[in-house]
Design a protein around this nucleic acid. Structure first.
Lengths: 147, 147
DNA sequence: TATTTACCGGACCGCAGCGGTCCTCTATTC
DNA sequence: GAATAGAGGACCGCTGCGGTCCGGTAAATA
């Protein structure tokens, strides 16, 4: 259905991994790459972005590595997606001036869709992703509905 | 944030247009293309897909054209997205056998995200998009910037 | 029956952008 | 100062998306 770049996908995977054990602990790129079964350069690239965007704190040097900047409960997946995917909304509509004035009756609808999706994802935190808590019983979804 | 192909975007636009006036009425490709300010071949292509997928009924010949196959209230945007975008989930994860077994602790989380988004969009019907309902009190400026 | 209009199906294509690699520089530890 | 690990950015092949075009068929009109 909707699409998301593979990099973003990986980003979530990595963050989930970071959040899984002791959130304080440092993990270096190599370790994470192995854990995720992904090529090191790719992982490295993503970690750099996540650091720049404030999700991770990094330390250089021999015992360097990455650790979460915030607690898993504080991090919403929307933020992660925004950071890795760029602030591109579902439709490019809005990036600058839109010429197709007439057709932009649909702009409002799109905003609405965007908001619905956004809102529903805001409620999903990193902490929700780490545990395999059989959600089946917690009706998480009820939080999400069209306003 | 999340992405959607431009074709899908156009598709929603076109359907919205179809749903706007008298849902019974027939519109031909040329007319819709002009209304949406989009090139005819593109519009034509999308309409064909939407027809094949059962959202529209078409009639050929001189007075031919397209009209909605269902009422705007019956059509969920998820369905439209699925049809135009393909059933590709947020992550390719799940399409067949996944080798990265170890890293697939994250599969469940992703499924969850997918479900949340999906569910939230299921509630948004075509009918919700045609009307400029409550929310739009803001001046044109706020329109975009979903940031 | 001829002509015109409009949809149908599919082939085709340029090109942006994505995933992925590599290399140099800087910081930290021991 | 030697080894390790992150920072930053250049580079690049290739897929797939947006877009175009064309030959075919069905309906309407006269």
């Amino acid at each position: 259905m909707l699409r998301m770049s593979r990099l973003t996908d990986y980003g979530i995977v990595l963050l989930t991994h970071l959040a899984a054990g002791d959130p304080q602990r440092q993990h270096n790129a190599r370790e994470l790459a192995e854990a995720a079964h992904l090529p090191l350069p790719v992982v490295s690239k993503i970690l750099k972005v996540l650091t720049r965007e404030g999700f991770l704190v990094s330390s250089r040097g021999v015992k360097g590595g990455y650790s979460l900047a915030r607690t898993p409960a504080e991090v919403s997946v929307v933020d992660v997606i925004d950071a890795l995917e760029g602030p591109i909304a579902l439709t490019a509509c809005g990036s600058g001036s839109c010429e197709r004035e007439a057709s932009c009756r649909v702009r409002a609808p799109w905003q609405r869709i965007n908001r619905v999706v956004r809102k529903s994802l805001e409620d999903v935190r990193l902490a929700d992703l780490v545990a395999p808590p059989p959600i089946l019983f917690l009706p998480q979804q009820e939080r999400v509905h069209v306003e």
